[in-house]
Design a protein around this nucleic acid. Structure first.
Length: 780
DNA sequence: GGAGGCCTCGGAAGG
DNA sequence: CGAGGCCTCC
């Protein structure tokens, strides 16, 4: 129990009190993770079975980190702790218990893109205009309902909700919710909110299940409690009701997810739910300088809704916080990059010690440009996740089909990719049948009688081929490992071939992404039983185990390129929560951007923006730099901005305000943006880079010049001209220029040629349409 | 059937 | 400005 001596008084008390309800209010940088980690270790050392501990976090990364830290303290036993995000832990439980609520254990988890596609499909089927029923709005409304445990049927019966929807001209919203739920159910799928919703249903309606998990989770810990929503709150409350050994950790000042239903009241009201709660406040900040802590404290004091807490530090005063004024967003990018470059030189710092934080992802572009000009390597966190990329998602959709063929969104993605002649018309017809007969899509296309009676012979046989292919994969699901089956699917489906044929840079990158996914499968197979998996019994390394929780993974779960990590970090402030950096730049401190203009209508929303700023400030250890631009491009327009009110909320004694002029910023400063189009063209050419548009127009001009009158009319699908084309023939295309035929397929008149163009990469062209001219014979 | 052009629309955040 | 949807043309 040596480790207890590494804690300060308050931390130690929080770690040592193992019974009853405990609330830990942990200021930024106050050693929260350490307390959580030590408390779990202490539970185990005090005789609690790791199987009886449930630790819930908000990110996979946090769970992973905590588990490995606990493991170094208590050994491999740490693997038996139920630790993970709310979504991953309860997905796991739902796979055990799902039968109770009519879900199979192999249910699919829809990610937000799947959900949105399903909503769009339903709107179309119901003839609802997606300008009135904007898919995102519809989804938010459904999400809010689920978070508050209102089912579709209850929604339809609720007059108040109906009135709201009618007032906003969306009277059919309840119907859409109902159709959406039915479709998810029919597809054996749950969306993110369902994982929590159905867990609540399970614990509410099945006392034996509730009892089982209450007994299993004798001790419960919840991190980032300020960010729990009602649904999560209720799960925790239900599970903890028996023993009340619940410890929640959070910081009201860092609650930044109210927009997606997080309820700050959960932390503020903890005392009401558990009157005998013991509260500990971690107020000593070990991370930041006095200037930073002082500034952050003053900022957050402008909020009304707060718990009483005084964060302090015994660290040095440190440097003043600088404020830099820039004329444009581009200039801001330059000045940030130059500042980093200088700090790097003056302080012997390395790139990985710097973070640039912004309110919106769109702001990264001008920053990136600045960093590139200064040759500073950087890494952007967030953005499109690996698994969201189209090509990766397509292959994963095959995997999903193999595991759960009722998965309609997966089916729609792969049924005609790669192209196999099952077009829109066929798919639409199948969907109509599925809806009319209340069956799922797969049942419609896989049943031979339906297939042969409802589709013409050609279509039916194409459908049959597809169905048989999926079935052949399914047959191997339990007999071969994930890598073997995954590779087989990638090649037998034709997906790999299709991507391999595309030699454009984007095509090559898509191909590489597929290879990376397959490598991931290989690693998964070769790995020892899951480090971050909750182990009850070891499971075979089959494709379903790999695939089923992919929707819950984010990119931060698969980064960490060890030889390549000395980079400046760029991310949104939301993404920076829980991280720390010696040097932090917070950019875009402008009214209507930060605070966001969308948040100015209410005090609550403005306070959330302010907490966001508080989070940003408290990421820094040594130095904070704030910057803003007087004008910036937003949505293609130049807009003028005032400095953010948040700057004024920092007392002057912590600030060093200077206007910066980048050293070499001729482009960004002297070319006024209002006539940017011609200017930009000129400047790109001068700097030696050629845009794609430029390239294209050059090619066009060139081949237009060389074209002889009348020649265009010779190429037609049935002419002799075409018949002379074989693999290896050199041809000229009006737009793509010179190239060589590398492959031909199909029968006349629908012969499709793959042509490798010198400038434009590989293109597939139908000869009857593409007017190719022969310029050279195939080489023998 | 698919690529590219044109147009509209959104615009924050993540498991 | 960029992504995504629709239309056209090959």
């Amino acid at each position: 129990m040596e480790y207890l001596n590494e804690l300060n008084g308050e931390q130690r008390k929080a770690v040592e009190l193992l019974d009853g309800p405990v609330m830990i209010i942990a200021g930024a940088g106050s050693g929260k993770t350490r307390v959580l980690t030590y408390r779990v270790a202490h539970l185990i050392n005090s005789g609690v079975d790791p199987f009886n501990i449930l630790a819930l976090t908000f990110t996979n990364k946090a769970a992973k980190e905590m588990r490995s830290r606990i493991e170094t303290m208590v050994g491999p036993e740490a693997r038996n702790i139920w630790m993970g995000t709310f979504h991953s832990v309860f997905a796991k439980i739902l796979r055990f218990e799902g039968e109770r609520i009519g879900y199979p254990s192999n249910f699919t988890i829809y990610d937000s893109a799947d959900s949105k596609n399903l909503i769009k499909a339903i709107l179309k089927e119901e003839g609802l205009d997606d300008k009135t029923y904007k898919p995102n709005l519809v989804l938010n409304r459904i999400s809010a309902a689920k978070t508050n445990l209102i089912s579709a049927n209850e929604y339809l019966k609720n007059d108040e909700l109906f009135t709201e929807d009618r007032m906003s001209a969306k009277p059919k919203l309840g119907l859409v919710y109902k159709k959406y739920s039915d479709r998810l159910f029919k597809s054996g799928a749950m969306d993110f909110d369902d994982l929590l919703y159905w867990t609540n249903v399970l614990l509410r309606d099945f006392p034996d299940v509730l009892n089982k998990y209450q007994d299993r989770f004798k001790s419960i810990m919840v991190d980032e409690y300020q960010d729990t929503n009602y649904s999560q709150y209720l799960i925790v409350k239900r599970l903890a009701a028996k023993f009340e050994n619940i410890c929640v950790v959070g910081d009201d000042a860092q609650s930044i997810y109210a927009f997606r239903g997080a309820n700050i009241e959960n932390i503020l009201n903890f005392k009401k739910d558990y009157p005998d709660v013991k509260t500990f406040k971690l107020e000593q900040n070990y991370r930041s300088t006095k200037h930073i802590v002082g500034a952050a404290n003053h900022v957050i004091e402008h909020n009304k809704d707060r718990l009483n807490k005084t964060v302090w530090t015994s660290n040095d005063d440190g440097e003043l916080i600088t404020v830099t004024r820039n004329m444009t967003d581009n200039e801001e990018g330059m000045s940030v990059a130059q500042s980093i470059f200088q700090t790097k030189m003056n302080e012997q710092a390395t790139e990985k010690e710097f973070a640039i934080l912004y309110r919106t992802n769109a702001q990264s572009r001008s920053i990136e440009e600045g960093l590139r000009k200064m040759n500073l390597p950087y890494r952007i966190y967030g953005g499109l996740s690996f698994y969201q990329r189209a090509e990766v998602k397509n292959l994963v959709s095959y995997f999903r089909m193999v595991i759960n063929p009722q998965d309609e969104e997966a089916l729609k993605r792969v049924i005609n990719y790669p192209a196999r002649g099952i077009g829109k018309t066929t798919l639409e017809k199948a969907i109509v049948l599925a809806n009319d007969w209340e069956k799922d899509l797969w049942t419609i296309i896989s049943d031979p009688i339906t297939r042969n009676s409802q589709f013409n012979a050609g279509t039916a046989s194409k459908l049959e081929l597809f169905v048989n292919m999926i079935k052949s994969f399914q047959a191997e699901l339990k007999t071969v490992d994930a890598y073997e089956l995954g590779s087989k699917i990638a090649s037998s489906s034709g997906l790999l071939r299709d991507l391999h044929a595309d030699k454009s840079p984007e095509g090559v990158s898509r191909y590489e992404n597929i290879q990376e996914l397959l490598n991931g499968l290989k690693e998964f197979v070769e790995d020892k039983p899951g480090e971050d998996e909750i182990i009850d019994e070891p499971e075979a390394k089959t494709l379903d185990l790999f695939t089923r929780d992919i929707a819950l993974l984010t990119d931060s779960d698969k980064d960490n390129d060890p030889n390549n990590n000395n980079k400046v970090s760029l991310m949104t402030i939301h993404a920076s929560k829980g991280l720390e950096f010696p040097y932090v730049h917070i950019v875009g401190l402008e009214e209507n951007l930060f605070p966001s203009q969308l948040s100015l209508s209410s005090r609550e929303e403005l306070e959330e923006e302010r907490r966001l700023f508080y989070v940003a400030l408290t990421r820094a250890e040594k130095k904070v730099n704030l910057s803003y631009a007087v004008s910036r491009f937003r949505w293609g327009n130049l807009v003028h901005s005032e400095p953010s009110r948040f700057i004024e909320e920092i007392p002057e004694k912590h600030l060093n305000v200077n206007a910066s002029k980048p050293i070499s910023s001729k482009n960004s400063v002297t070319s006024p943006s209002w006539n940017r189009k011609p200017q930009l063209r000129t400047s790109t050419k001068q700097s030696g880079t050629v845009s794609r548009a430029d390239l294209k127009s050059r090619n066009l001009t060139k081949y237009d010049d060389s074209r002889e009158p009348g020649e265009l009319d010779t190429g037609d699908g049935t002419s002799e001209h075409v018949a002379r084309m074989i693999v290896g023939t050199e041809v000229i295309h009006d737009k793509f220029g010179k190239g060589e035929i590398v492959a031909m397929e199909g029968d006349a008149p629908n012969i499709k040629a793959t042509v490798a163009f010198q400038g434009a990469g590989n293109k597939q062209l139908l000869l009857k349409f593409a007017k190719l001219r022969i310029v050279g014979k195939a080489k023998q």
